[in-house]
Design a protein around this nucleic acid. Sequence first.
DNA 1: GCCATAATACTCGGATAAGTTGTGTCCGAGTAGGCTAGG
DNA 2: CCTAGCCTACTCGGACACAACTTATCCGAGTATTATGGC
Lengths: 163, 163
Amino acid sequence: MQLRNQVEWVLHCCAILAMLPEGARLSTRALAEFHGVPKEYLSKALQSLAQVGIVEGSLGPAGGYRLARPASAISFLDIVEAVEGGGRSFACTEIRCNAPCHPPGFRPEGPCQVARIMWRADDAWRRELAAQSLSALADQLGRELPADLQSRTAGWLKKRISS
Amino acid sequence: MQLRNQVEWVLHCCAILAMLPEGARLSTRALAEFHGVPKEYLSKALQSLAQVGIVEGSLGPAGGYRLARPASAISFLDIVEAVEGGGRSFACTEIRCNAPCHPPGFRPEGPCQVARIMWRADDAWRRELAAQSLSALADQLGRELPADLQSRTAGWLKKRISS
DNA sequence: GCCATAATACTCGGATAAGTTGTGTCCGAGTAGGCTAGG
DNA sequence: CCTAGCCTACTCGGACACAACTTATCCGAGTATTATGGC
């Protein structure tokens, strides 16, 4: 059970976007260069974010992406689910109905006991991610990153910011 | 992020094994027929369980699998990790080091802030699964399953039990 | 100087393809219990 | 009745095949900004 690497990419991209000045945009190319990942594939991941309204793209030169809502209103879960899809990690196929000693077409009421436990763990995972906002990540990065690195990064970004 | 269907299969198999009388074995074929899944592929999953000592197989006729330790000492996490592997769901490739404004070969101290949050969610998932034992599942099944279904199942199993 | 047009830089979406993983099948080797035949 | 050898049923492990998914790459269409050229 592995998450795609796109998840890592967009989380870092969102972190960058969250630290940008209000309204500033960054192009897919700039984000891809900054993280050293293929531009066109990253673009697909960012499109997924745009589709669910986490991020907002604009066309033309000086176009690019910016957060569609304040970073405090975007959770890790929002981002992960945008890329990875919202389904549960455990899919119950109701194999308990296949027992040859059961009458054919038998359907027990209530969800499978095994699935219930797996889903509860899944919910715990989701709760944890839902509790983490992008702004909290940005704050933490601002606190933990060495000052010289922050200023060098800010300088590099300033050259690539559109509008 | 989907778990394999093998996970569902072995969880149900373990539930059956946990409800068997002390020392009784059940062959892969019986388990596969009971759940309506391909015998040979299920066999691979059971081998994974045997490798980590959750289950114990024996050769020859009247051979088959039984739990290698009491059901109360087997957690859902044990079973899931046996099949799915113990790695984390989020793999951090340290793309924060790729920024072109950083000195080449730059390695920050401490784990990536993004990864820390993802790993915390992962830990919550693991904790939840580790807290659920096989015996708890067996108890719940004994309580919730209609009595007639239980006796029909018990009768079917009795014919297939070895030794 | 002003407007129309062209060039540019970006997003969007589809097509394609290689690599990896999940899913399933097949078969031979090894092992242990049961059955049969010969003493 | 006893024992040796065969048969059967099972696990184990490897090899193989197919499908789905991941991870890209490429290209054309659409759009908005900028640059250019004619008036």
